[in-house]
Design a protein around this nucleic acid. Structure first.
Length: 312
DNA sequence: GGTCAGGGTAGCC
DNA sequence: GGCTACCCTGAC
């Protein structure tokens, strides 16, 4: 793994041949506060509003002239409006899981079987985002029996009605993800106005339990995977699948293996798992894929869904 | 214009 | 453990 990070004004550049494809990262359903436009992804994370772009040759030549680049053949990811090197060290390095060598990860997973060999090649450029735990809890409660388009609309509206303003970026006003306290203060009707339907009551109860200390968010990181899962499932609206998404995307648990309808289909289609029981499917998934079952799942999920494999 | 599914879960048996 | 209703929206 060989890359460097450079800063110019309020932009960061990740220079080097690492797995990093904005589309693969954001289109797999791990994040909901983003939009894609002509291959560029604008997203919100923490206090940042950032536009991601893979630079073309002309753009790289410009950087070369400015002594920011030594080799115009190398891949450059531009993180527009992401801050400086301190922001990189304090936030982005972790957020984009940049200390993990994804090329090595793909090689490792490819050795497990041919399905993963194909899926990791297809999903090359994917990375797991290490997002905020509370944001993941609320976002994935909304995701249950829902579709991505509507989840995104609801999360956006929720941020708008009770998140702090972050400022205007390219003509749009953006908001920070709300705190547990801010959501707990809302009425059920106000939460329903975001389009979450019956999930409004779950969101309110969960935000209340977290804000009043009834549920200790901080302890999740100290628990074993199994215990953390048991704790999260206690939250209203959090079942086994949502708990695994929260642990995978919001608590750095590589082993968390979310079993949804797609995973059920792909485990059946690729691995002949005929069981319909989520607990058993998950157990088999972890048996086959091991410690990094969640990462394997992400590649397989993306591949299966994009190719519409295993449908019906 | 019905009907159905959408990254499941709570509540009930 | 298995079964079913569920807010709402878009696709068919």
């Amino acid at each position: 793994m060989n890359f460097s990070v450079k800063n110019k004004e309020n932009d960061l550049f990740i220079i080097g041949d690492i797995d990093f494809t904005p589309k693969s990262i954001f289109e797999n359903g791990q994040a909901f506060r983003w939009e894609e436009n002509q291959g560029k992804v604008t997203f919100v994370a923490d206090k940042y509003i950032v536009k991601l772009e893979i630079l073309d040759l002309e753009q790289k030549k410009e950087l070369f002239k400015q002594d920011l680049l030594e080799d115009v053949d190398v891949q450059v990811v531009k993180m527009h409006n992401a801050g400086n090197i301190d922001d990189y060290n304090n936030f982005w390095k972790n957020y984009f899981d940049l200390s993990r060598d994804y090329k090595k990860l793909r090689e490792e997973l490819s050795k497990i079987d041919d399905n993963l060999k194909i899926a990791t090649e297809f999903g090359k450029g994917f990375r797991v985002l290490k997002q905020d735990l509370f944001e993941m809890i609320i976002s994935f409660i909304i995701s249950a029996n829902n579709n991505i388009k509507r989840i995104k609309v609801s999360v956006d509206r929720l941020c708008k009605i009770c998140g702090d303003e972050l400022g205007v970026f390219e003509g749009n006003l953006y908001y920070r993800f709300p705190t547990p306290e801010a959501i707990a203060k809302l009425s059920i009707e106000e939460i329903e106005s975001t389009g979450v339907g019956y999930r409004a009551a779950y969101i309110k109860k969960t935000a209340e339990d977290i804000s009043n200390g009834n549920f200790d968010l901080k302890c999740i990181s100290d628990l074993s995977y199994e215990d953390a899962h048991k704790e999260l499932v206690k939250l209203m609206g959090v079942g086994p699948k949502v708990a695994d998404c929260i642990l995978l995307f919001g608590n750095s648990r590589d082993i968390a293996f979310p079993v949804d309808t797609w995973v059920m289909k792909l485990m059946n289609y690729y691995y002949g798992v005929e069981d319909k029981n989520i607990v058993k499917i998950k157990k088999q998934g972890i048996e086959i894929f091991g410690e990094k079952a969640g990462l394997a799942q992400q590649y397989l999920f993306y591949y299966a869904r994009e190719n519409n494999i295993g449908k019906k």
